[in-house]
Design a protein around this nucleic acid. Structure first.
Lengths: 202, 202, 202, 202
DNA sequence: TATGAATGAGCATTCATTCAT
DNA sequence: TATGAATGAATGCTCATTCAT
């Protein structure tokens, strides 16, 4: 089964290369923005020739889209709603994480770039929309579900309001991350510990 | 004093031209983003030649900066905190206003573009920061001030927390505008009428 | 009427520039072929920057198409069928004219390039087809028309055959031009003076 | 003699591979032209890797040259002049044959491509010239030779004229094939049956 | 003041060719 | 023998900016 093993190895390597490219691209996109980042700079950052990138991605748009998908996945994981958690504490500890230009990890600046680009690129808008819809549904479910099932037992009529507010708060906080990465954590924690309980309780 | 009159007239005209250019630029920036919008398209939209723009602005960056300044001014005027207003109602009615590509009025997409650009351009970051600081101070003052003076009489220890939350809410709402311009206003109003009082009351 | 005069002058200049570009392009296309000729080489030959070409032509294809149109126009003028002419003598004297890489004038090598490209590019094929149809119709008319009207009075049933043969001979001769530009003119004249009369006579 | 046998086998295999490559290349050249056809597409069509091609051909030019040689060989075989044949009928039945993109058989589009390229590439021009000279000599011989020896017994002074005309007719017809592959065969046959006898008879 | 022709650097992308495996 | 990853130069094209008019 050498052939099969070889094919596996090749695919593995391909996936590795795609990863290298995406990491580099993310760095560049954060540093310069989607449009201002050049393929040359991405190639340079990835330590490969510009031409090689096109073996792994059809074009620049495909890279952007892949980054968007990866970021939205991370964003989704940013809020874990399986059980009754201390959302305020979680949001506080998430604040500013990966705000620097590291390649992996959800990045606030990138969310802005994505959101801005979504107002023009329908594909990105669609990806964001998919994310929005799933997240909102998960929030509503989490708020409505019985406390014994890890939910908050809110009346179904109220949950959508609260879900919307939570989402706005969450995104407003992400935006703020880019402006005040050094924001006082105690202030933040106090504020969130005041408002979040009021949002998840009847 | 013909000379002085002429000079006044000239300056007036110059200011008018700058306005035309900024209006056109804003339209283009909203439609294509800062980097993708070309000077040619701005000139075209403004109904003048590309070369002429350079008589009024040193380069494209200068236009971007001027747009940022103008937008922040508008944003500042968007929230009037002189007296106790129904903030929830105001925020609801503001939602989606000027979301279309008209030149005047704060535009949500443009705020995103500006915020994204601020993570790279120090001058824009500084402008945003100036705006942030003023707004936060005004909020804190408004929350702390005596009710008789149009404030909410919150304890000075609490106001900063609430001000931060209000700002996050504002901005999260702005971001949401770009994603769900058709959001149900009744849902939005209900949600805001729930949360805003919790933020401005002790 | 300075405005009108200026506009005229500008258009005149634009037409002049287009001409310069087409001349340069033709030279390059003859020398390297449609695909191998680079925009840079065309710009260089035309003595202008590459970017400027795009003010006058949308893209490379548009230049190729313009060249094709110009060449077919010249080809059309190569055969004048208004009266009974000595076609053999005319074809002989046309042979090899403008075979060198000069910019103006029908060029045999370019006809080959055009014909080859027509097998792939539908727009070029359409242009060639238009040319073919008009030429064939003109030939048929010329052959069928009454001798008193400058025609050859051939029966209508025969003219299409002869027109086809004349066209093949004409194009075969063009192809030969590229292979034997130094072909003995006396040999050519003798041959044509033998066959052409047999083609235009009943 | 295992070594010798092995060597024979190897050479045989090499020749086979070269054939595969040429067939694929021809298909690609017809479809896209010499310059627009990529080595990758040739490799793909041949069902092998791009790198392997370079074991059998030094570079792309070498492939083009090999194709030219092979095509001229086929063209040479296309016209059998050993005996008095019905040339008109043969030309008619040949018309449009192999016009499709099959690998074997002379292809009209490819002849155009070759002829066009010959105006630039001296090696291709030389190959074409060799072909021209042989064909012309064969035609002259065929026309001059005694009818009893399968010729047409034309005076030696006339044969060169007729040979030239025949060649122009052949090639003009090849060019026409690319433009009117659906040309009415009856029209064509009638036309050729009129002109060919005039060319081979005194 | 105003134009728009002109430039030149930069962009995304392609492709013949090489080479480690 | 055969692969296909990798390179690097070249290509068509765009665009901020300048400048003669």
């Amino acid at each position: 089964m050498t052939a099969k093993a070889d094919s596996n190895k090749a695919q593995e390597r391909a996936e590795l290369q795609r990863g290298r490219i995406l990491d580099a691209a993310q760095k560049c996109f954060i540093e310069h923005g989607f449009h201002a980042a050049s393929m040359a700079s991405i190639a340079d950052t990835a330590g490969m020739s510009a031409g090689l990138i096109y073996r792994y991605f059809e074009n620049k748009s495909a890279i952007i889209l892949a980054i968007v998908d990866r970021q939205l996945q991370l964003l989704r994981e940013d809020i874990r709603l399986s059980r009754r958690i201390d959302l305020a504490a979680e949001m506080t500890s998430n604040y500013g994480r990966a705000c620097s230009a590291d390649a992996k990890g959800m990045n606030a600046a990138l969310l802005l770039e994505i959101s801005a680009e979504a107002t023009r690129d329908p594909q990105i808008a669609a990806a964001l929309d998919r994310y929005d819809v799933t997240l909102r549904a998960a929030l509503v479910d989490w708020l409505t579900r019985d406390p014994e099932a890890g939910g908050h037992g809110l009346p179904a009529a109220v949950s959508p309001d609260r879900a919307l507010l939570l989402q706005c708060l969450f995104e407003g906080l992400k935006l703020r991350e880019t402006r005040e990465p050094q924001l006082d954590r105690q202030l933040l924690e106090r504020a969130l510990h005041y408002i979040v309980p009021l949002l998840v309780k009847a």
